[in-house]
Amino acid sequence: MVIFLTRLINGISLGSVYAIIALGYTMVYGIAKMLNFAHGDVIMVGAYVCFFAISTYHLNPVVGVLLAMVVCTLLGMVIERLAYKPLRQAPSLAVLITAIGVSYFLQNGAQLLWGSNNKMFPAFLKGDALQLMDGQLRVSVTTVVNVVVCVVVMLALTWFTGQTKMGKAMRACSEDKGAAQLMGINVDTTISMTFAIGSALAAVAGVLYMSSYPILVPTTGSMPGIKAFTAAVFGGIGSIPGALLGGLLLGVIEIFAGGYISTQLQNAIVFAVLIVVLLVRPTGLLGKQIREKV
């Protein structure tokens, strides 16, 4: 029972990070209707920025995270402006391949700038673990922080898309760009804003991911990126609650698969579950049925 609960908690902790990353995929998909495969590598850039801020410049970790968010926000907007905006009218395959290209560009750029050696991300979340059930069940500070950040991000985004003018304009754009333009909404600005928000979240997720898996290399972002993409599809791409549900489920499945079945098959099991879900529910768990307009 204790082992089960420990694994469940670890799964939720990892899943919270996936959920935050998945939000970036799902929001960009919802509005720009594209899969931004470079999203995972924005995580890596965020992690490096925070790493240098803490290790090299000895800044406060909170400052490091904020700095990473600023850099990633700008990076996300620049990527959108230079790589994706010119392809707004292009076939989706061209955009997809471009996104993969941007991903490689970021990975190789990072290698050129910062080298390919492992960097050990400093443990910055210090403090005693919470002791539950007479000390048998321990909940680490990392877990608490992951879950709290995830909940705060979800609530903030729900408020933003539901209550603010800009957030509502985003929803309008994701439904019908032509009609949104006729309302006076600048679609380009809205798409740029979406990339900014998604990339800022990627920076946060990158730092959180590092506190569980502290080895930092230029390809660090690709695995959590692809898993979070899976989570977004799993929950229903384009849906914010779907990203949360998909992220949490994926994290739990991953930890359970590693714990109860085999650590070697862990990733294979995660992706197998995705395949099964897509066979049964092609739009994901919370995805809307899409009717093609004729």
């Binding site: 003018k165 509502k168 929803r171 309008a172 032509g178 009609a179 309302m183 909404i185």
Partner: peptide
């Protein structure tokens, strides 16, 4: 526009707010 193109997943009031976006 032709075919109305209201924002189907938003409420009536939110649709009107979008009309006043500018």
């Amino acid at each position: 526009p032709e075919g109305r193109r209201v924002f189907l997943q938003m409420t009536v009031e939110e649709n009107l707010e979008m009309g006043a976006y500018t």
